[in-house]
Each structure stands twice: as structure tokens, then as C-alpha cells.
Design a protein around this nucleic acid. Structure first.
Length: 819
DNA sequence: GGTTATACGATTTTT
DNA sequence: TCGTATAACC
């Protein structure tokens, strides 16, 4: 059976496909048929070069990519493809490390710790070492830990190398805690794997002999440790094929080392380099725009995408008055395209730099009743209730896991408080063992009650561990739910929220049932490993009939007929944090490149002239990336109502010198922007009716007649919601049980005016400038009072307030609520 | 030992 | 603005 590869592939793709031995670097531009080349190359190796499938190793970054690769190769070569070892770096590491658990001082059941688990351990270490926040914050410690592990540095390396003794100590303690907890973190799955390859010749040789051909996808995203692993697994034949795109390297901040792909030829002399530059995805205009943006980067191999298709329609750049208008523009455009051309909802994607930008867009889409899904956000396995129950399961599987023990020991509440837990931890430290081991033999400084409760907890857990041995997975989960009291706790709450949590737990049970049915390893161990190593990229579902909202990072590897890129403003995109650092700016530009190249037919880039950032309204300047777009590819539109003022052209040709010239000249005319006019809701007077409150049943001690109470606002905090209700001149908080559909909010009314030169304080801006003399305010302690005068400027505006019975008090405005 | 007030901080997140 | 971590409180 011979396949006509020449007919299926273009000449360059063909070359890459039939290169059998020796190092090969495939620089695969966006949309250049990369997956096609990889899968056909594997097929070629098996069918034409006589390579045994089981001697091929293909490494990807996501489970999804691994799954897809396997499927597609299977479609080409049939069942033989099953013997190819397709895996992510991390699951490969986990698998090997379980086999060699003794060498790394773990049980075969070791647990995998994620970032939040790591954080808990690091926090403990910082506390134990009495390191002040100012000396090293948790955040700094985590950053250093991450970078050490990405580069393969041990605590000793840090100590001797960078001489950061403080951190080296923290790192050492952390490692010890990990070991005591019978845990490995994500970094260890790679680092310890590398350690085994380095230290044990037989392990190294086993892999070198077993895998004659190694293939790596998304090579631009590999970190130092991953690259070292690859090098050590190679035998003298050096059959390493790496595929990637330096222009799409967007995970530098996660440790990805672009240098790996940039210097590949130096590392592997004689390596063949093939550039896939023909693009089969996008129109000419889109490619040209992408090329113009990325051309400004200096650190790159240099590729120029081309297409045999036409230019296509122009790229639309939309300048909107504010983020609201931006969102409405997107909504309207989608509606229009849905009406006219032959599109379906899932053809549209809206991409942004940061998750926070999705909110306004969601509001607009849901108001228009358009179906949409937000990719990413809170992962299923990150939900509290899921984490809780999974922690029980992890504890059953790995009793020494301290993070899990501490998570569940008082969830649901068992009267085991912070003090008792602290004693448990202290004892564990003294005895150099895990907290679980301490439970067997509790320390003396515990009271009788605490001792009893700990005993009960331990009894419950050992009971679960006993029963776990001979129960199928879904039954186990149910057992945990019942015996831990978790289900009772939720039932007892009886809230809407608790019901939602129960639904999620039902879903977890279904997951477990599904997992139990699978032909491969369906143990608890395997289930937990899967839950630790899944991501939301694995579950971006494009078959759904909805518009997709996501960050550009999440969009990497995907394509859509119509793409909207939002928030192209200085500080938003490129992000303000990237401004000083040239490397980071280059990464932002690559991100822009990734975003643009997701589009197949139509691309819309939007920006707002004014946007609320962290609660502050700010005028926004156009993104410098807009200046790079070739003018002839672009059409500009404006959306929303704009205030007065001259309009600036958002972009010029990149070679146009006018953009380099300073905007202002000494002695020349300037105009300062008008100071922002604060507009505030008049909350002191009864607001317009938004919804009528209906309560059922009447809560105890209620003093409100539901029928005439007016709901002003629904507040949601910490997962709970309540209504702010205005009645008889007073504000109250109520927990709603039933309410009518909210009507649109009434227009806001301006109240306070500022003299020229006087800026409202942060507090005033936040609370709507209600701090003028005469306003009535409420203080948590002193009750309702009247503002006497303002006492000072600045971000913490103070006011003197007269409280009946208390006299005049000076109070920071932030601590007052308008009445 | 659990609830409530206040302080604080805030990209991106393949495993 | 909004969500969370910590301190202060009962």
C-alpha cells in the first residue's frame, strides 16, 4: 500500500514528510498545514520507511493535541497507530516516575500538586521561617520557584549559583514538605524525570533504544528542562523532528524558551530546516497585516506567509467611544453577518488580552440573546466543591498528602479549628512526618475534645480507605459524599447555591462512571492523575452552536471564519506591564500575530477611546500595533456617541515617518483634555423602581412590607447575593427568595461638581462623589450622620461628619455609605 | 471558632 | 470595580 504523498502535499510539505533520519526543524507558519505534515510524516515512517510504530514517540503539550494526533494518524495507518507513544511531557514524566518511585523517595501513589497546592506549602514555609512580607512575598517566592523548576535548578543550585540564600532555604524546605506529603508538583514531573535520565544509565539507555524517532509539537513552547529531556532521550541516530513557530511563542512567562527553537541549528549541527510558509487558512489581507505586525520583532527566524487565495475583504478597525460601544459594535456586526451571509454562531470568535475584558461583551451578547460560551474561566476541577471531594479522594489514595488533609479535615465543619490544625502541623514538623501519621498518635498538648474529634475524623477516613479497595470508582465518590457528611452539609444549607454545588458533584459522579467504563487503566489513581493534568484547552468545544469568547492565549491553535480582536489600546494590548521590557513587547507582538492569524475570512479589530480600568474611567490611546497595520488592508469605522474633540488617525503606514516625529513642539500649542466630569447616581433620594421584591417565606425579624419595598441593586459577593432595598427613606439588605425580572436601570443623575483643578479623590470617584457638605451618610458604628465639611484632599479624602448623639467625627470617606 | 469589616491587588495559564 | 486574604470582632 503506497500513498501518493506528492499529490496530497505541497512540495515543501512533502520534503518535510519524507525526511526520515537526522534532526529536522519544521518551522510551521500559522495555517500552513502543520498537523497534516506531522501525521503524514508518521504515516510515511511506518508505511514507507519500515519504522516500527512502537518506536515512535510523539510529544505534545495538551492532552487534546495528543488525542487528536493519535486519531488522525489512526485514520491514515489504521490500528498500528495505537502502538505509537503519544503523550504530553507531563504525563510521560508521571508515568515513568511512578515506575521509579523509589529513586525519588515517593510511593507509587504519589499525588500531583498544582499551583494552589504549591502555594499552600510555600505559605507554610514562609511562615515557619518567619520571613517578612517585605523580605519575600508569597508571589515572589512562587515566581522564583517556578523559574527554578523551569530551568532545572535544585535548591543547592540556587544556593551555590545565584546565591539567593533566602530563597534557597525556602526552596529546600518546600522540597522537604513535598517529599513528606508524598507529592510532586508539575515542575517535578519534568525535573525529576530529567534527574532519572541523568543519573541512571539503564533508564536512559532504555528510552534511547526504545524510541528511534522522536517528534515534538509546539516546540517553541518547550522550556529548558523539557529540551534537556529530549536531548537525553536521543540516541546516536539523532532522529529528532521538532515542529513549531517562533512567531507563535507566547508562553515565555511560563518558562518557554524561544531560544530552543531559535538556536536549534547550533545545537544540532547538520539539522535540516524546512519552512512551511504557504497558508491555507486566511485571506491575503489578513496575512499581510499579520506579517506587518510580526516584522517589527527582531528575535525570529523570519518567515513570510503567503496564500494563493485572493486578498479578501478589508480588515475592519473599529474605533468605539467606549467599551460599551465596542461590545455593541461586535454584537451588531455578528447579527448583520448572521442575517446576510451563510454563517452560523460557532463561526464567530471574540478574543481579548485579559479575561476582565469579557464582561462588557458578555453583557451585550446576552442582552441580545445571542448564544455564547466563554472558554477558560473557572475550570471544573477548580470549583470549591469539586476540589473538596477530590481532596478526599486524593487523601484516600495518598494519605500523607498534607494539603489535602488540611483541606478536608474541617470540611464539612467538625469542630476542628485553626488551633488544633496548627498543633497537628507543629507535631508533624517535630516528628518529621506527615500530619496523617500524627493522627495515629496525637500530640499531648491537645484537649480531650480535640483528641476525640481527630479520632473520629481518622476513623472516618480509614473506613473510607478500607471500603475504597473493592468499590468501583463512581461508588467510591458517592461513598465519600455520604460518609464525609459533605452531602448532608449541602442539603442542610438549602440554598440555590448549594443546589448548584450538588449538581456539579453529580457531574463528578458521572465523570467517574464514564471513567470507570474506559478500557484502559480505570483506577482511582488514574482518575486523579487525569483530573490533575486536564486543562480547559482540552475542552474548548467548537461544535456548539455558540459564539466563542476567549483570551488570545486560549485561541492558539484554533481558527474561525470571523474573528474580533478587542481592546487594541496602549496599556491593554500591549499590556502595560510589557511596556518597558523589549522582550516582553516582542511577546505581546507575537500574541497580536497569533490573534490575527486565527481569522479565516473576516477580521475585526476594535478599540475604545475611553474605558473603565480597575474602576477608573480613563481615556485610552490606540495600540501601537494598530500603527503597524498596512493601511491598504484596512477600513476604519466608528461606533458609539463620541464627545467633542479632534479625532486622531489611529494608524499610519509603518514606513510613514510622521509617526516617528514628536507630537508636540516646544512653544507650540497644546490643549489639555477637559477634566472628567463626575456623574453620580443620586442614591440619597428614592431610586426609580427596578424590581419589586417578593419574599416567601417571611424571614424572622423582618420589618419590611415586601409589597412596597423597592429593590435598588443586587449585590453579589463571595458567592452570596442580596438585595439592597429602599423603603421609607432607609436602606436595607435582604436576601431574595424570589424576584421579578429586572427592568433596565434608570439614567444616572449628576450631583457633585468640582472646581477646575480639583480632582475628586479615589473614594469619591468610587462612591459617586456623595461627600459634599449636607449629604447624609451612614457609618457602620455611628449610624446616620450629616457631612459637616471636607477635611483635606488626596486619595483618602477625610470628611467631618456630625452624628446625632456622637458629635463631629473625622472619618475617611471610604468608610461611609451614602444614604 | 465562626462571622464581618477592611485592606489590598489586579496579564496571559498548554501541565 | 470586584474578588480575595487578613484582621478584628463577638
Amino acid at each position: 500500500m503506497s500513498r501518493d504523498y506528492k499529490a496530497i502535499l505541497n512540495p515543501v510539505q512533502y520534503e518535510a514528510c519524507v525526511h526520515v533520519s537526522g534532526p529536522l526543524l519544521i518551522l510551521a507558519g500559522a495555517g500552513s498545514g502543520k498537523t497534516r505534515v506531522i501525521t503524514h510524516r508518521i504515516a510515511y515512517l511506518i508505511e514507507n520507511a519500515g519504522v516500527d510504530p512502537s518506536s515512535i514517540l510523539a510529544v505534545t503539550f495538551t492532552n487534546k493535541a495528543a488525542r487528536e494526533m493519535k486519531e488522525r494518524v489512526e485514520n491514515l495507518v489504521g490500528d498500528g497507530a495505537r502502538r505509537i507513544f503519544v503523550s504530553t511531557f507531563h504525563s510521560m514524566g508521571a508515568r515513568l516516575l511512578r515506575q521509579h518511585h523509589r529513586e525519588i523517595g515517593r510511593s507509587p501513589n504519589f499525588v500531583i500538586y498544582d499551583k494552589s497546592d504549591q502555594e499552600k506549602l510555600v505559605k507554610q514555609v514562609l511562615k515557619e521561617r518567619e520571613i517578612a512580607e517585605t523580605a519575600m512575598s508569597l508571589q515572589t517566592a512562587m515566581l522564583k520557584l517556578d523559574s527554578a523548576k523551569n530551568n532545572g535548578y535544585t535548591p543547592e543550585d540556587v544556593h551555590n549559583g545565584s546565591r539567593d540564600y533566602l530563597f534557597a532555604g525556602v526552596y529546600g524546605d518546600y522540597e522537604k514538605k513535598l517529599q513528606q506529603a508524598d507529592a510532586l508538583d508539575f515542575g517535578d514531573l519534568l525535573m525529576a524525570f530529567l534527574g532519572l535520565l541523568k543519573q541512571h544509565q539503564h533508564i536512559r539507555e532504555y528510552y534511547q533504544q526504545r524510541f528511534r524517532h522522536v517528534l515534538v509539537d509546539e516546540f517553541q513552547d518547550t522550556n529548558t528542562v523539557q529540551y534537556s529531556i529530549l536531548k537525553r532521550m536521543l540516541n546516536a541516530d539523532r532522529n529528532l523532528c521538532v515542529v513549531g513557530d517562533d512567531d507563535q511563542s507566547i508562553y515565555r512567562w511560563r518558562g518557554a524558551e524561544v531560544g530552543n527553537i531559535l538556536n536549534f541549528e547550533q545545537d544540532f549541527p547538520g539539522a535540516r530546516v524546512i519552512k512551511l510558509e504557504q497558508n491555507y487558512r486566511s485571506t491575503g489581507n489578513i496575512l499581510e497585516a499579520a506579517g506587518a505586525v510580526i516584522a517589527r520583532n527582531s528575535q525570529r527566524h523570519g518567515k513570510k506567509l503567503w496564500t494563493s487565495a485572493g486578498r479578501g475583504g478589508p480588515i475592519t478597525v473599529c474605533v468605539a467611544a467606549n467599551e460599551r460601544a465596542e461590545a455593541d459594535f461586535i454584537r451588531d456586526t455578528i447579527r448583520e453577518l448572521m442575517r446576510g451571509e451563510n454563517y452560523q454562531w460557532s463561526d464567530f470568535a471574540i478574543m481579548y488580552r485579559a479575561n476582565a475584558l469579557s464582561r462588557v461583551i458578555e453583557d451585550s451578547l446576552s442582552q441580545a440573546r445571542m448564544p455564547y460560551v466563554v472558554a477558560g474561566g473557572l475550570r471544573f476541577y477548580d470549583r470549591k466543591e469539586i476540589k473538596d471531594v477530590v481532596a478526599y479522594l486524593r487523601l484516600i489514595n495518598t494519605p500523607n498528602s498534607s494539603v489535602d488533609l488540611e483541606r478536608v479535615i474541617n470540611t464539612p465543619p467538625r469542630g476542628i479549628g485553626a488551633a488544633t490544625i496548627a498543633r497537628l502541623q507543629a507535631a508533624a514538623r517535630d516528628r518529621d512526618c506527615s500530619p496523617w501519621a500524627v493522627l495515629e498518635n496525637p500530640p499531648d498538648d491537645l484537649g480531650a475534645a480535640a483528641r476525640r474529634k481527630l479520632g473520629e475524623f481518622r476513623g472516618m477516613m480509614t473506613g473510607l480507605m478500607e471500603q475504597a479497595k473493592d468499590q468501583p470508582l463512581p461508588e467510591m465518590v458517592k461513598l465519600v459524599l455520604r460518609q464525609s457528611g459533605y452531602l448532608d452539609m449541602l442539603t442542610g444549607e438549602g440554598t440555590e447555591e448549594a443546589r448548584g454545588r450538588m449538581q456539579n458533584l453529580d457531574e463528578l459522579v458521572s465523570f467517574a462512571a464514564e471513567f470507570h467504563q474506559r478500557p484502559e487503566d480505570n483506577s482511582l489513581q488514574a482518575f486523579l492523575e487525569q483530573s490533575a493534568l486536564v486543562s480547559d484547552q482540552d475542552s474548548v468545544d467548537l461544535k456548539g452552536k455558540s459564539v466563542t469568547l476567549m483570551t488570545i492565549h486560549t485561541a492558539k491553535g484554533l481558527e474561525f471564519p470571523v474573528v474580533f480582536l478587542t481592546g487594541w489600546e496602549e496599556g491593554v494590548f500591549p499590556h502595560s506591564r510589557a511596556r518597558e521590557n523589549g522582550d516582553e513587547l516582542e511577546e505581546e507582538r507575537r500574541l497580536g500575530y497569533v490573534g490575527i492569524t486565527r481569522a479565516m475570512r473576516r477580521l475585526f479589530i476594535t478599540r475604545a477611546e475611553e474605558r473603565t480600568v480597575y474602576g477608573d474611567r480613563r481615556p485610552q490611546r490606540p495600540s501601537s500595533f494598530l500603527l503597524d497595520l498596512p493601511r491598504e488592508c484596512v477600513r476604519e469605522v466608528r461606533a458609539g456617541r463620541f464627545g467633542a474633540g479632534p479625532y486622531q488617525q489611529p494608524w499610519r503606514r509603518p514606513d510613514d515617518e510622521t509617526i516617528q516625529r514628536p507630537r508636540y513642539q516646544l512653544g507650540g500649542p497644546v490643549r489639555s483634555p477637559a477634566p472628567p466630569q463626575p456623574t453620580v447616581p443620586a442614591r440619597a433620594s428614592p431610586p426609580a423602581r427596578i424590581a419589586t421584591l417578593v419574599r416567601d417565606p417571611e424571614p424572622a425579624g423582618a420589618s419590611i412590607n415586601p409589597s412596597d419595598a423597592i429593590v435598588h441593586n443586587e449585590a453579589v459577593r463571595a458567592g452570596r447575593s442580596w438585595l439592597e432595598v429602599y423603603q421609607s427613606g432607609d436602606w436595607q439588605k435582604l436576601v431574595p427568595t424570589r424576584r421579578e425580572e429586572p427592568a433596565p436601570a434608570p439614567p444616572l443623575e449628576s450631583k457633585v461638581e468640582y472646581e477646575p483643578g480639583v480632582r475628586p479623590s479615589r473614594a469619591e470617584r468610587r462612591d459617586g462623589g456623595a461627600w459634599s457638605p449636607g449629604s447624609r451618610v451612614r457609618h457602620s458604628k455611628y449610624g446616620v450622620g450629616e457631612i459637616h465639611e471636607r477635611a483635606g484632599e488626596g486619595p483618602e479624602a477625610k470628611v467631618k461628619v456630625y452624628f446625632p448623639g456622637e458629635g463631629i467625627k473625622t472619618i475617611i470617606a471610604r468608610f461611609l455609605t451614602p444614604v
